[in-house]
Computed example of a mutant assay.
Amino acid sequence: MPKSLSFRAGLGSILFWSVISAAFIGPGSVTACAIAGSKYELQLLWVLTFATLGTVWLQEAASRITIATGRDLGQVIRQSYSGKTGLWVAWALFLAIFLGCAAYQAGNILGAVAGLSLMTGLPAPTLTVVVGLVCVGLLWVGSTQSLANFLGVIVFAMGGAFVYVAFGAPVTPGAVAKALVVPNVPSGSLLLVNGLIGTTIVPYNLFFGSSISPSQSLSDMRLGIWVAVILGGIISVVLLLAGMLIPDDFSYPHMATVLAERLGPWAGNLFAFGLFAAGFASSLTAPLAAAITAQSLLGVPKNSPVFRAIWLAVLATGVTFGLLNVTPIPVIVAVQAINGILLPFVTVFLWRVVNDRALLGEHRNSVSQNVAMGFVVLVTAVLGGWNVWLALAS
């Protein structure tokens, strides 16, 4: 008989799974959502509905596999193929996740440094070195979870400030409700559409979430994922609405100024610290997720020299972009789009495993779950392929 869901267990599960929503509310979400509101107003709001529900459906499937089998997603995928085929699949998936994490890390470091620059006025290269060294130290000793949780709370506090600001957006509830469900891809917005998807449905979170869920019951897991991810999606929506208050080209100083004018000087400082916190927390998560994926798919021992070399390579990618002093906003949007393009490649393997009758039995996908997951895979594949085609054509 499945374990009944108590209020205490449900609340604990929501807090437990908030790590997933905190992971996608990073510099990428702040940047992509605010730019979408500033440039296209409500026209891309539907993308956040799709991406939030897609996150719930895919994350639930990955975690259900772990709860049902006692093995994480990477292990199950690796063992679903025999011989050289299994090795090729494992390496292909690892490289996709590794490249995605490295791309994310560029945006994470740039976002963290941008927030620190707003607060301190210090030069970006100096701040990049400091952030990089602190990340190396924390990842080396493994003391990242408490700090990441604290910074995640700050990010959610920043989201609360945006909720207040968003009430000043020049929109009606009816217009927002319509935009949440009516698809629209205005001219020139395709890269940003993929960016909004890639910053919400984070491919490495499927492996990361799968690795932390075996001790939960299905009911606890589902409640926790639904509530925590929906809350993250609401923050993304209000970030977009707040972006509508910026009439000119989006920039971090401009966003801080808008918050300061609406709420007071403290809100501008909260945005700067929240941007830093979002970037720094994700700067710990992305390298660690790449190494955990290698552990899951390739059997790399935890905290071995190879394990550390993997997260160090991802971290070095972000630090390199920071030292090159590139403009953060275009890079952050671009790397989110890259992950949106990589997403279908990862989800196809997840879809195959979660329908394996011999492996999952009664826990395999239902018809409705297959329809939902198939819809996510189809839409992300079409949008990603469309983006690639336009890039090649130009």
Score class of each variant (00 low, 15 high):
Ser215Thr: 06
Thr347Phe: 06
Leu58Ala: 14
Ala157Gly: 14
Thr69Lys: 04
Thr120Ala: 11
Pro170Asp: 14
Gly142Ser: 03
Met158Arg: 11
Ala286Ser: 07
Gln75Thr: 13
Ile338Met: 15
Phe50Arg: 08
Gly361Ala: 10
Ala161Gly: 11
Pro330Asn: 12
Ser189Phe: 03
Ala106Met: 15
Leu196Val: 05
Val371Lys: 05
Gly233Asn: 06
Ala112Ser: 15
Leu350Glu: 04
Gly37Glu: 03
Gly115Asp: 05
Gly83Phe: 01
Thr69Asn: 07
Ser394Asn: 15
Leu241Gln: 05
Met221Lys: 14
Leu298Trp: 12
Ala61Ser: 09
Thr120Gly: 06
Ala169Tyr: 09
Leu298Met: 15
Ser82Gln: 13
Val176Lys: 01
Ser236Val: 09
Thr257Phe: 01
Ala96Gly: 05
Ala228Cys: 09
Val314Tyr: 02
Leu288Ser: 02
Val176Pro: 02
Val335Ser: 12
Thr293Ala: 15
Val331Thr: 14
Met221Tyr: 02
Val19Cys: 00
Phe349Val: 03
Gly374Pro: 05
Thr380Gly: 07
Gly10Ser: 09
Val155His: 04
Ser366Pro: 08
Val335Lys: 11
Ala256Arg: 00
Phe16Ala: 10
Leu58Cys: 09
Phe208Gln: 09
Leu180Tyr: 07
Phe271Arg: 02
Val113His: 07
Phe280Thr: 04
Asn269Pro: 00
Gly385Arg: 03
Thr144Ser: 05
Ala272Asp: 01
Gly83Glu: 03
Gln216Thr: 08
Ser219Leu: 14
Trp226Glu: 08
Pro344Ala: 05
Ala277Met: 01
Thr120Cys: 08
Asn387Ile: 00
Val354Gln: 14
Gly195Pro: 02
Leu390Phe: 09
Val367Ala: 06
Thr347Trp: 03
Gly384Asn: 06
Val319Phe: 09
Pro183Val: 13
Ala62Tyr: 00
Thr49Gly: 08
Gln336Cys: 13
Val319Lys: 02
Thr85Ser: 05
Trp91Phe: 10
Gly83Cys: 04
Arg78Cys: 01
Thr285Gln: 03
Met244Arg: 07
Lys178Asp: 11
Phe98Tyr: 13
Asn387Ser: 15
Met158Gln: 10
Leu288Trp: 06
Leu297Cys: 09
Asn339Arg: 11
Thr126Lys: 08
Gly264Pro: 08
Ser18His: 00
Thr55Asn: 12
Ser219Trp: 04
Val130Met: 14
Gly224Glu: 06
Arg352Met: 12
Asn149Ser: 14
Cys33Asn: 15
His254Leu: 03
Met1Lys: 13
Val382Tyr: 09
Val377Asn: 12
Phe345Met: 11
Pro287Cys: 00
Ser189Gln: 01
Leu93Met: 14
Asn269Trp: 05
Ala393Lys: 13
Ser213Leu: 08
Tyr164Trp: 15
Val56His: 00
Gly111Gln: 07
Phe156Val: 14
Ala177Glu: 01
Gly70Ile: 11
Val314Gly: 05
Arg8Phe: 05
